[in-house]
Amino acid sequence: MSSNKPHDGPGEGPRYGPRKGFSRRTFIEGVGIGAGAVGALGAADQARAATNEVVGPDPVSITLSINGKTHKLDVEPRVTLIDALRNMLDHTGAKKVCDRATCGACTVIVDGSPVYSCTMLAIEAEGRRIETIEGISSDDAMHPVQVQFVEHDAQQCGFCTPGLVMAGKAIADRNPRPSMADVESGLCGNICRCGTYVGVRKAVYEAARESA
């Protein structure tokens, strides 16, 4: 039997601290996407394609560009992007909820468009620019969509939140002055079971104007 551990050690819940200084106005301007790196990836990818090479079913070595950084990993061709992100790269922000392209919890942004990462093979994401929730904020500043999610209490259990934030960011990226109807239709690929849409709608509406 083990004894009670001290209660005051760093618990695992929310912490103020280095991150407390986020503000409505500050956020990072993209995360320095190395165009060179992406170009190089594209070439590697083309090289594989050009040989008409059959790969797999054993693991294949691939390179992914995630949040401006390149990651090399070995994946079976069947491994989905969400599983590569979560299980191999510990990018656990995006969630796998339905695993069938029907809920949006796994939403990431690929080449500027929101996509379901449960429904894209990791190998198919090679040569593309992948943005995940981990890449849109820094230690001292959240993205305006995230800031507004907090301001409007747009989360309960929070499990759908990363997907909704990314869908919201995709709306804001494309349209600095979306109407409420634009916001709603941009969120039509995401489900929240706890029922946070009232806050989410307001948050995305405000954030788009703010990031403009």
Partner: peptide, 30 residues
Amino acid sequence: NFEYIAPINTLSAAQALSPDAGVTAVLAGG
């Protein structure tokens, strides 16, 4: 699990889908 190929032209794609290759499927957006 499956093997994967992403040809660069339709002819090679059609060849890659040859019945000799076993059970095949075409992947577009997925």
